[in-house]
Design a protein around this nucleic acid. Structure first.
Lengths: 334, 334
DNA sequence: TTCCCCCGTCGAAGCGCTTCGACGGCGCTC
DNA sequence: GAGCGCCGTCGAAGCGCTTCGACGGGGGAA
């Protein structure tokens, strides 16, 4: 293994000069820096991560806690994870993967052993047991999602309330007067996952504001559940002309079910969704939708952490505004 | 921060004794160990990961490279990742997440900086550019999947050839004489991803051996592609009574498409799949399937790495035997 | 011309842990 | 009863890096 002293000797400088040339924490003449860089390249020097972490008390590693519960859409989680890794690399950091399963102990462990400098926690519940720990930890953290009481924490997410509202406004603008929200699986609401409830709140508020008849229907992730919901909607809301879907795996089956029941999309029924663009565009009838901005959220959470690590204050709440993309599944009320 | 010297002082022993009590690398009297453990608990001591890594030249971190290409089923990737993390934790290791995007440089970086002790690489291509690097690296690695030339490497995966065969044998045993394989998206074959081609090979060989008329059909991941394949099969193979599906997202849409074309499953058509059990059981007609043993593969890859890190020799190839679970989608030929 | 300051560099002191050699003391063996 | 060996523990030497204080020399100000 080639170490910093080897580079120093080869470049004819002291180890500290090599270190400063690398970190830029003190001025180094252009000429010396060049020599050092040449030596580094020539010898293939790579600083030892552990030694660096020990001396600088910075590991340059971020912890990412991913959820593995039922009812959450795995591809979205993966997109978050990938964007976090990519953004972290841009800041010369790596990402340690933790599963929800390890829970609080895992968080405490990686923080206390100084394995990581900071933490990103996904899938936050409204009353999440990890919140006190995160507040108490001596390391910065960012939550993807909002708990009921976010004071003292840093949170980032799509503004799901506004997303629910925006879907309704869009349908209202097209003249629809009776609409329904097909939501996440029941267990997601039972767990009090913030984002699902926020969609409901936005949806309901906007409907009331627009004098629209509305109803909310949690729905399992299986096609059969979608069919049941579709049948029930037709039965109970015969005047229905607009549907908002917040449940990825069920989007296409639901449209199929409506069509099987004789309702054309968008002819008889306008459908909007809150889901990844990729999914919305891939459905048989491309669906007007609000994207889950996984990349922005992932990159944003890393950005926030970097600022906190740098000692800069950051806002406690970062809500990304929803953007609605009109596709072929919505149309003015006939 | 409480360090090992604090614990030592508190327990009335030397730091090295604390270290040995923790690692068990030298005998420590039961009484002393007890005192040390009490002190550790009382003071809330956590060894500093960087210091440990520096002194022991072991970081207790594994690198996991996850794919993010199109055509591979994300939930399966996630299951692998989670099982790797879980297994790693059982061996007191953590997992660093790398994306394919970083490529060879990322692998070299985490290995050379001693950030990780060993590497797990998923989604290996038949002629993967990373293979020479992995062979040259001074750190052990395990591939999930098999390249064309696995000599000098350690690989683990489901025996996809045997899986393809087993599906055919099952259908043959039920009397089916004309069968088709609906495979992964075309790009997966173009990339020469080992597992997809192995299924084809096993499928074809077993069909020939059993005197069965067979055909292979790559298929995109969208429902529309499934419908096209279903129509084409009916047109070109009117005598078809058995289908093997190796394409997760398309499994249910394909069955729907067959039924829409008037073919009942399993009445007119027997269907088997190679896919996660979770998916197979969730389809409207629960599908006879061979599971992707993500947990065994993930845990197995960690186990192999641990043995390699321990200096034990391990087999170059570990092929997990396929297990077929009979559900409701297969039936003797009418 | 002199003084001061700052730029660029060096040396040394750790960061917190592991590990190796050493060393008492006890129980055996012969 | 003397000696050998082993068990349990200690002390010290690093592991490879960062960082702090120090210092020589050159340029600008007075």
């Amino acid at each position: 293994m080639v170490k910093i002293t080897d580079v120093a000797r080869h470049a004819g400088v002291s180890p500290s000069t090599v270190s400063y040339a690398l970190s830029g924490k003190r001025p180094i003449s252009e000429e010396t820096r060049q020599r050092v860089e040449d030596s580094i390249r020539e010898l293939g020097y790579r600083p030892h991560a552990g030694a660096r972490a020990l001396a600088s008390s910075r590991s340059n590693v971020l912890a990412l806690v991913v959820p593995l519960r039922t009812g959450i859409h795995v591809p979205v989680v993966m997109r978050f994870a990938v964007s976090v890794v990519t953004a972290a690399r841009r800041h010369d950091h790596d990402v340690l993967l933790l599963t929800q399963e390890e829970g609080e102990d895992g968080l405490r462990r990686v923080a206390d052993t100084a394995l990581v400098d900071a933490l990103i926690v996904m899938d936050v519940q409204l009353h999440d047991g990890r919140l006190p720990l995160l507040r108490a930890l001596d390391r910065p953290s960012v939550l993807i999602g909002f708990p009921a009481e976010p004071a003292g924490l840093t949170c980032i997410d799509l503004d799901f309330t506004a997303a629910g509202e925006l879907c309704v406004e869009h349908l209202a603008g097209l003249g629809h007067r009776v609409i329904a929200l097909v939501g996440s699986p029941p267990e997601v609401y039972v767990r009090e996952t913030g984002f699902a409830q926020r969609v409901v709140r936005g949806f309901t508020a906007a409907a009331r504001r627009n004098g629209i008849v509305s109803s909310v229907h949690p729905c399992g992730a299986e096609p059969a559940a979608a069919r049941r919901v579709a049948e029930r909607l037709l039965r109970e809301q015969p005047a229905l002309t607009g549907v908002v879907v917040h449940n990825e795996p069920v989007l296409e089956p639901l449209i199929d079910a409506f069509e099987a029941l004789g309702l054309r999309v968008p002819g008889d029924l306008s459908v909007t969704a809150i889901c990844p663009d990729e999914l919305a565009g891939r459905v048989r009838v491309p669906v007007t939708s609000i994207a889950i901005p996984a990349d922005e959220v992932g990159a944003g959470s890393v950005e926030l952490l970097m600022r906190k690590l740098g000692g800069t204050a950051v806002p406690e709440a970062t809500l990304l505004p929803p953007r609605l993309t009109v596709r072929e599944s919505t149309r003015p009320r006939p």
